[in-house]
Design a protein around this nucleic acid. Structure first.
Lengths: 306, 306
DNA sequence: AAGGATGATAGGCAAAGACTATCATTGCAG
DNA sequence: CTGCAATGATAGTCTTTGCCTATCATCCTT
């Protein structure tokens, strides 16, 4: 049985005339007659009672017609839905981002994305790198904004921008009046850290090792669950910390008595990439995402050339 | 787009494996791969994200899959329904019968029909000949039991049996003790008639003319709307009447003080036929109907040979 | 590094579907 | 009553579609 045959059935039932139905279906009358007859043979029932004068659907044909209508209707609905998704920038995209990036980047790009690609339906996830990577591999999300390069061979990273780390200190801190922080300044500080699992934690520790700071992890088990909490701790005088540049635009700067200062240290940065499966089919969508993100970055971060 | 392709889509989505899906569909893997690809091209969207290692449906594919499931499901339901109707003695039949026959014949055949053809769904209509003929021509009913031969060329009559007329008289009547009624007896009687439109009325009047009875229609405008009413009138002493043989089995014989006597008059009968459109496709069904009717007639009526 | 699993590709063949031409039936007009 | 118009059925031919076998490319595993 064929969708086409069902369309023929519906046409004949509606026109009650093989010639007119054939015309409506853009086929010749013999073609339509033959297909209807084949359908009748296949189903084993007579669908139409025909004379040279008239064509009338049988009661059984009427009952089957109802099914045929549903089938054709749903098939056409399917094509319609597919058509709306033909545009790669339309339809659902499941995008993940790490917690130290998401709350600060998303506000910058959601509105422009909606404006530029109104038919895009973004589903956001905010999790740490490992979780996002697992979800990528299991097709639970389509792309993720990470600060690390994925190791899984199925994944590919498209670098977007470099985000410097800034120093966050309380207003009462001696470095409050410094406009830029040096590596030496850093080594004098108690740097508070996020909980394990956040890539930011590892990257800060790496940096401390690089510049030879003895004070990595000095505060021991005092770890913040989120960047916001961490900054509350800084504001309360527990120490200072490094925050990614995009986060310094947050409300905490005025609320918590914490200020941020840039570092005079080029390697104090992380590289944000858009990570996706190599097999992900909607590449133009990734291009669109990347483009909108790059267009709406503040100048505290540096787009990656290329 | 093709129903088969949608089945392939569903199979691949369920198996997440082209080879296994192909096996389930009883086609080769290249065939299935090719058809899926064609479907993707036709729809303009990627349905599956494939690597050599895995096959995963895309979110868009998932959404379209829901439609495909409905389409295939309904199409299969349609085939199932058709299969149950393959037997010509299954499914709906719209049968009409004239009012002077229906109440007396139907009780005889409905139960046997149900027993012999349990899947038959009989829809009964009881109307006068003209109405039934019109309904036949307009495909509103499929067959009718009439006492006349239809004139329309699209209709065909299959004679079933001859039904003699009997005389119905009140118990108080002088002819009560006669076991058989002659034509001469008839001419002495006040024969009550049914309303116009009933073929029985015309046939009784014809008979009166034939036997030279002067008393046709003597009671003037006293016309009964139904045979039951007519017999109530007879029981009340308004006159006598002719009734078809099958009707003498009705309850009125004991209830109303009316008795029936056979006529010694071979032409005092009507021929009951099964009438249907020449184009009606379910001839075996008509055979079945005729056969059951003939098998369950009382011996007051004579089946037509041939 | 070799082997196995998996999906993609190429080439050939058979069936399905479509078209044109024609026929058969029937109702209607002259 | 005969010829014509309308309508669906039939016959024959051709194109398209779908399927198969054989083979390739890639990648994971041993």
């Amino acid at each position: 049985m064929n969708l086409r045959d069902l369309k023929y059935l519906i046409a004949v039932a509606e026109k009650r005339h093989f010639g007119q139905a054939a015309e409506a279906c853009h086929v010749s009358q013999p073609t339509l007659s033959g297909q209807i007859r084949k359908l009748e043979e296949y189903l084993g029932v007579t669908l139409f009672e025909r004379t040279n004068r008239s064509v009338v659907i049988t009661p059984i044909g009427e009952e089957l017609l109802r099914y045929a209508r549903v089938v054709v209707e749903q098939a056409e609905a399917m094509e319609t839905v597919a058509r709306t998704y033909r545009d790669p920038t339309a339809g659902p995209v499941r995008l993940g981002a790490i917690p130290t990036l998401s709350p600060y980047l998303m506000p910058l790009i959601l509105r422009p994305l909606k404006t530029r690609y109104p038919r895009l339906r973004l589903v956001l996830t905010e999790e740490i790198t490992d979780s996002l990577t697992r979800r990528l591999l299991e097709h639970e999300i389509d792309a993720a904004l990470l600060a690390t390069t994925p190791t899984a061979p199925e994944l590919e990273a498209r670098p977007l921008f470099d985000e410097p780390f800034w120093l966050a200190i309380p207003r009462a801190h001696p470095l409050y009046h410094a406009m830029e922080i040096s590596a030496d300044d850093l080594t004098t500080l108690d740097l508070l850290l996020l909980a394990d699992g956040h890539c930011l934690t590892d990257q800060v520790l790496d940096l401390c090792r690089t510049i030879g700071s003895p004070r990595d992890g000095e505060m021991g088990d005092l770890r913040a669950a989120s960047l916001e909490t961490l900054l509350q701790l800084v504001g309360a005088g527990f120490g200072s910390t490094l925050v990614p540049a995009l986060a310094i635009r947050g409300a905490w700067m005025t609320d918590t008595g914490v200020v941020a200062r840039p570092l005079d240290l080029p390697e104090a940065r992380r590289r944000i990439s858009l990570v996706y499966r190599r097999s992900f089919p909607r590449r133009p969508l990734l291009d669109a995402l990347a483009e909108v993100i790059l267009e709406h970055l503040p100048n505290t971060v540096k787009p990656v050339k290329g």
